[in-house]
């Protein structure tokens, strides 16, 4: 085992790690922002919306993320140049970069999986609490913001924490569309140093640490959720 490459590539690895974290955090934020309405309309929404949300979740959960990623980057990306004048528009620098595509694909994936989780979460909040809120004279939006959503999130917090760790473990896929996050950087290391095991083992160690940090962070927040002692 040789580890001397580690010093040479350290700055690149740190950059890659930063990119991984950006991808993870941003896709969780955008994904959850989508997942909450997707879960909600499946519980209370009008029939067509509920049906559309259900179809979205099934499609996302039924196809590999790798295919979704390639479909969005290569597939949708290959359609853009057909739009006349798009190369001159201000959007082109964004559309030419791979990161927005990855972020979009990962956000959709988070939305699909967590939409399903949120559906169960919204349904799991006791009716009495919502009726009590209504009896206090809260408007529907206030009920959602003050009672329904916080209670739903509390109930599924451990599930969501597990799902976010799965999202972390999916981020290396972004390397297949030319994003050099930490996995992508180690592929470069492997190609340039001809070492197979060291970079991969180091990578496994990095992800182990990341998972550990996430688990501890989520547990901290989980413990802050007030629980009724039984």
């Amino acid at each position: 085992m040789q580890w001397d490459w580690l010093i040479e590539y350290a700055p690149k690895l740190v950059e890659g790690l930063w990119l991984t974290l950006q991808l993870l955090v941003l896709s969780i934020i955008f994904g959850m922002a989508l997942a909450i309405p997707i879960g909600l309309v499946q519980v209370t929404g009008p029939r067509p919306l509920a049906w559309a949300a259900k179809a979205f979740c099934t499609t996302i959960r039924g196809t590999p993320l790798l295919i979704q990623l390639w479909l969005i980057y290569y597939g949708v990306g290959s359609l853009f140049p057909f739009i006349p004048g798009i190369r001159e528009s201000f959007l082109w620098p964004v559309l030419r970069d791979a990161f927005p595509y990855a972020l979009f694909a990962f956000s959709l994936s988070v939305a699909g999986y967590e939409g399903e989780v949120m559906r169960g979460a919204f349904r799991g909040v006791p009716k009495g609490e919502l009726e009590a809120a209504r009896a206090m004279g809260m408007r529907p939006f206030t009920i959602l913001w003050r009672i329904w959503l916080p209670r739903a999130l509390q109930n599924v917090f451990p599930t969501l924490a597990g799902e976010f760790i799965l999202t972390l473990k999916a981020t290396p896929l972004a390397a297949t569309i030319t994003i050099f996050e930490v996995y992508g950087v180690t592929t470069i290391v492997r190609q340039e140093t001809y070492r197979i095991y060291e970079p991969l083992l180091f990578l496994a160690f990095i992800y182990l640490c990341l998972t550990g940090v996430l688990v501890v962070t989520f547990r901290y927040f989980e413990n802050r959720i007030p629980k009724r002692r039984v």
């Binding site: 981020t171 095991y197 991969l200 083992l201 550990g212």
Partner: peptide
């Protein structure tokens, strides 16, 4: 369960 599948697949394949 803590390491991404992609990394494991590469490691296990070569190893």
């Amino acid at each position: 369960r803590a390491v991404p599948e992609l990394v494991l697949i590469l490691l296990l394949y070569y190893a």
